[in-house]
Design a protein around this nucleic acid. Structure first.
Length: 293
DNA sequence: AGGCGATCCTGAGGGC
DNA sequence: TGCCCTCAGGATCGCC
C-alpha cells in the first residue's frame, strides 16, 4: 500500500482541526526519538533563544512520549519531562513525511524534526515539519512539567467538554460582549471566530449581548451548542483526513456546513432572514437578527 | 474594565 | 495576463 503520507492541516485551525492534526500525528511521533532538528527560523520559538540552544529546546535527542491538546494548543511531551507547545495560529501546518518523501511546498517551513525508531536508530522513520506562511503560529519551549502546567493554567477549560454551569461561572460576570468572552482563551480554550458565530446562532444569542445579560438557561444551551458544533466538526475533520488518504490523494473540503460563518448577506438557513455582518471584538461576525436575540 | 486600534504576515480574490 | 488594492485571521499590547 502506498498511501499519500503528508497530512496537512487546514487553514484557520480551531479546536476540531487541531484535534484532527493531533490524531493524525500521534502514530508517527509517539515512541520515536528526535535524531536531529533543522531550524528554518529562530524567531518563531518562545522564549527566544540563541540558535545554538534551539535544537535542545526543540527536543533534539529526546524520545517523544505524549501529544496532548488543550484548546488550540498542542503539547508534545518528551520522556525527559521537557515539552514543546505548538500553536498553529492561522496558517500553521504540521506535516509528517516518510523517508525520501518531499513536502508539497518547501517555502515557509520553519522547523523540521528528523525522527527515528529507537530500536533502529540508524534509519529514519519519518520527519515532522512545521510550516506557517503568515507566522501567527508559535513553537514554545517548556523546560519541565511545571512550566507546562503554569502555561496550561492560563487557559480556560477545554471547549469540547464545557458544561453550562462552568461556562456560566466563568463568563456571566463579564460586561463584555458574549462573543468576545467566548473568544477569550482564558475563559474557554478552543473556540475561535468560526465556531463562536456558529454556537451563538445555534443557541439564539446575539453576539453583542453583554455576557452579564445572558441567562443561566441560555448558558446551558450555549455550552451544549459549543459542544455539539465542535464535536461534529471533529468528526468531519476526521472524515476529511480519511478522504485525503484515499487513492485520489484528494484533500477534500474543510469548508464545513457552516450555517452563519462566511454567509453575511445570505439567507438564514433557519428562518430565511438576511444574515447580518458586523464587527465584534475586531472579528467579522455574522448573525441572524430574527433568530438571535 | 473593556473597547478599540495597531501590530505581526502572506495569499486569495476582486477590480480594472 | 498582470498589477494593485483590500481583507482575513489569533493573540497581544498600549491607549483612552
Amino acid at each position: 500500500v502506498n498511501l499519500p503520507f503528508a497530512l496537512w492541516s487546514p487553514l484557520l485551525p480551531e479546536l476540531p482541526e487541531v484535534e484532527s492534526v493531533r490524531h493524525s500525528l500521534l502514530p508517527h511521533l509517539i515512541g520515536r526519538q528526535v535524531a536531529r532538528v533543522i531550524i528554518g527560523r529562530t524567531d518563531i520559538v518562545t522564549p527566544p533563544a540563541a540558535e545554538s540552544h534551539l535544537p535542545a529546546h526543540m527536543l533534539q535527542g529526546q524520545v517523544l512520549q505524549r501529544l496532548d491538546r488543550i484548546g488550540k494548543q498542542l503539547l508534545l511531551h518528551a520522556a525527559s519531562g521537557q515539552a514543546i507547545g505548538i500553536h498553529l495560529g492561522m496558517t500553521g501546518q504540521c506535516t509528517v513525511l516518510r523517508p525520501g518523501e518531499q513536502p508539497e511546498r518547501s517555502d515557509h517551513i520553519h522547523m523540521r524534526w528528523q525522527l527515528v525508531d529507537p530500536a533502529r536508530p540508524a534509519e529514519s522513520s519519518a520527519e515532522l515539519l512545521f510550516r506557517d506562511p503568515r507566522r501567527f503560529g508559535e513553537l514554545r519551549w517548556f523546560a519541565c512539567p511545571e512550566a507546562v502546567a503554569t502555561f496550561a493554567a492560563r487557559l480556560g477549560p477545554d471547549a469540547l467538554a464545557i458544561t453550562g454551569q462552568d461556562l456560566f461561572e466563568r463568563a456571566h460576570s463579564s460586561r463584555r460582549a458574549i462573543k468576545a468572552v467566548l473568544l477569550d482563551q482564558a475563559v474557554l480554550a478552543g473556540v475561535g471566530n468560526i465556531y463562536a458565530d456558529e454556537a451563538l446562532h445555534a443557541s439564539h444569542i446575539r453576539p453583542r449581548r453583554a455576557a452579564t445579560r445572558v441567562t443561566r438557561a441560555e448558558y446551558e444551551s450555549l455550552a451544549a451548542a459549543i459542544r455539539a458544533v465542535l464535536t461534529s466538526a471533529v468528526t468531519a475533520g476526521g472524515s476529511t483526513l480519511r478522504d485525503y488518504l484515499d487513492a485520489d490523494g484528494n484533500r477534500g473540503s474543510f469548508a464545513a456546513a457552516h450555517r452563519v460563518y462566511g454567509r453575511g448577506g445570505q439567507p438564514c438557513l433557519t428562518c430565511s432572514a438576511t444574515l447580518k455582518q458586523c464587527q465584534v471584538a475586531q472579528r467579522t461576525t455574522v448573525f441572524c437578527t430574527n433568530c438571535q436575540r
